[in-house]
Nucleic acid binder design. Sequence first.
DNA 1: TAGTGGTCTAGACCACATC
DNA 2: ATGTGGTCTAGACCACTAA
Lengths: 249, 249
Amino acid sequence: MSTPTTTRDVSGPAFSPLYRQIKELLTQDLQSGLWKPGEVIPSEFELAARFKVSQGTVRKAIDELAAENLLVRRQGKGTFVATHAEQNTQYRFLRLRPDDDRPRALQRRLLECSRARAAADIARALEIKAGDPAVLVRRLLLDGEQAVVLDEIWLPGRAFKGLTHERLSTYRGPMYALFEAEFGIRMIRAEEKIRAVAADASAAALLAVPPGAPLLSVERRSFTYGERPVELRRGLYRTDAHHYRNELS
Amino acid sequence: MSTPTTTRDVSGPAFSPLYRQIKELLTQDLQSGLWKPGEVIPSEFELAARFKVSQGTVRKAIDELAAENLLVRRQGKGTFVATHAEQNTQYRFLRLRPDDDRPRALQRRLLECSRARAAADIARALEIKAGDPAVLVRRLLLDGEQAVVLDEIWLPGRAFKGLTHERLSTYRGPMYALFEAEFGIRMIRAEEKIRAVAADASAAALLAVPPGAPLLSVERRSFTYGERPVELRRGLYRTDAHHYRNELS
DNA sequence: TAGTGGTCTAGACCACATC
DNA sequence: ATGTGGTCTAGACCACTAA
């Protein structure tokens, strides 16, 4: 590893400390699939030797990647690529909680999985062209007998070629784990826009509420490596016995 | 600073690394008001000398406090106690954004500031006794001509003795900045429970929507040092031209 | 020019998991 | 016993701010 770029390189890029350059290299290896979700990455000392920097510098790079939930450290075992397939990280992005706060597993009911052409708004959100192939998934999440979430999920068609109703309904585990395992697409972060809306007839029927009842509308855009949007998810949540929980700091 | 507690101290507390012990000491100085919001704290080297540890250890303690937004580092200047009074940290907890994403300052209209006895649910949230004195503040936030937020704010009466309608309505700047400056109470973090509800007659009138219109209900519990709850805020948000924005990772 | 935070190194030792 | 991440130190040097 050469000397870090400094501000004295008038013609060059902005100053970037060594550990950030290492972080960038590690991110590239993650993105390329060299290390897959759930796998161990090389030890800090090995990476340090490979990059010709000190262990402390590699450590700081990994620190940041761990803070962003891209890597997971396990003392004595090693550093692992984060995955949505593990028990404790399942439904990491779902903020809906039962009011009594006794977490229970939600049942899934798949309603639809079809191919369509992306309308203008969908295409814009996914950064593809209007009319490009897309996949539409609709499903319910149930707490016991009660449907609480109606999701409408749009995915870019080219990246999710083999995604079928059959495959989705037989897969054990969260949808995002399937995306990792079958399509090599890992959801890194997401943005949500939340509104209160009135239930239309079709949503009302599926969620067993009167038409016009207030529902939480949660529009999520999920991103993979390189800030690339790979999912647009429109959720309608019943919040009479559940709530969306958020932490501010 | 003595040797850090280790797991070999069978009778003692759990292992805590040196930098966490330093962090705890710094937190105590913040809580005691030794360093007030907006002020500089001593330099890393001075703190290291004071605690008889290396600069790197102090640095790691400060790193964590900065990550929790209790301190703010400014290269070349020093490390400062975070405050809600600064331009860039105002309305830090308000996640409502206009749909067009052109941020504009919201107007405040104070509706009420009165003393009352805490009902059972309020008391439970504030961890005081039912019937204890409490302060109730009601106010509107307006985007231009349009009211978009109706807040009902409950505060523990003993901690907010001199809070009056007069004082609130004449104060320039965010409410949380007033709380810091006048009552020495700094909001550190908060939890929000979000629901979709139908507007009742009174909320509908104040927010200029039809009765029964869907509104976002945002119940916020704010905490100060030591996980002590010091505010219960029930907000009703119009989300026809705004949305609640959240980042997931 | 001096003082502050920010980066980087090299080495020692601790805690944890596994063999 | 070995290898991994976690902590701590001491010292050098860089980047930024203000006098």
